[in-house]
Computed example of a mutant assay.
Amino acid sequence: MEYQNVTLSLPKETVRRAKHIAIERGTSLSGFLAKLLEEATRREESYRGAKKRHLHMLRESDLGTQGRLSWRRGDLHERRP
């Protein structure tokens, strides 16, 4: 894996707290941030894939109705005494 240096400007208190978390997890601040970014990008890619699949299913499927509706609009709003 190829690495690239990145410069970040973060609030000092955030950096201090993040360093403590990294130490508790037995890693460096750089390693801790890299893992967080990897997880965030993996979740985003997974979400985008799921969204694409579900939109495809909605476009290509009749959702089990076989193109016919078994109800009328009035049935959905029928009032009972």
Rank of each mutant, 00 (worst) to 15 (best):
residue 67 G to V: 02
residue 54 H to K: 08
residue 53 R to L: 10
residue 61 S to L: 06
residue 61 S to C: 04
residue 29 L to S: 05
residue 76 L to V: 06
residue 55 L to D: 13
residue 57 M to W: 13
residue 41 T to V: 12
residue 48 R to N: 15
residue 8 L to G: 01
residue 51 K to D: 09
residue 76 L to M: 12
residue 54 H to A: 11
residue 44 E to N: 09
residue 58 L to G: 05
residue 80 R to N: 01
residue 28 S to K: 04
residue 12 K to E: 10
residue 42 R to N: 08
residue 31 G to L: 00
residue 27 T to F: 00
residue 78 E to Y: 08
residue 37 L to Q: 08
residue 65 T to N: 12
residue 41 T to C: 04
residue 49 G to A: 12
residue 1 M to I: 04
residue 76 L to S: 05
residue 14 T to R: 11
residue 15 V to K: 13
residue 67 G to T: 02
residue 52 K to M: 14
residue 63 L to K: 07
residue 43 R to M: 11
residue 29 L to G: 02
residue 16 R to G: 00
residue 58 L to V: 12
residue 27 T to S: 05
residue 39 E to F: 03
residue 53 R to Y: 08
residue 69 L to E: 05
residue 64 G to I: 03
residue 8 L to Y: 03
residue 4 Q to R: 09
residue 15 V to W: 03
residue 27 T to K: 00
residue 4 Q to F: 04
residue 20 H to C: 06
residue 79 R to D: 13
residue 34 A to R: 02
residue 8 L to H: 03
residue 47 Y to Q: 08
residue 24 E to K: 15
residue 24 E to S: 14
residue 36 L to G: 14
residue 70 S to I: 12
residue 15 V to M: 04
residue 65 T to Q: 13
residue 36 L to K: 11
residue 48 R to Q: 15
residue 67 G to K: 05
residue 53 R to T: 09
residue 27 T to P: 01
residue 55 L to W: 04
residue 53 R to V: 06
residue 72 R to E: 09
residue 40 A to M: 15
residue 43 R to N: 14
residue 54 H to F: 13
residue 15 V to A: 02
residue 60 E to Y: 02
residue 81 P to N: 03
residue 73 R to A: 11
residue 32 F to Q: 00
residue 79 R to I: 12
residue 11 P to Y: 07
residue 54 H to D: 13
residue 3 Y to N: 15
residue 15 V to F: 01
residue 42 R to D: 05
residue 67 G to Q: 06
residue 17 R to L: 13
residue 42 R to W: 05
residue 69 L to D: 01
residue 22 A to H: 06
residue 59 R to G: 07
residue 60 E to S: 05
residue 45 E to D: 10
residue 45 E to P: 00
residue 1 M to Q: 07
residue 74 G to S: 15
residue 61 S to K: 12
residue 79 R to T: 14
residue 78 E to C: 04
residue 68 R to D: 03
residue 50 A to D: 13
residue 30 S to Q: 13
residue 33 L to Y: 03
residue 67 G to L: 01
residue 18 A to V: 04
residue 20 H to V: 13
residue 51 K to N: 07
residue 9 S to F: 10
residue 81 P to L: 03
residue 25 R to T: 08
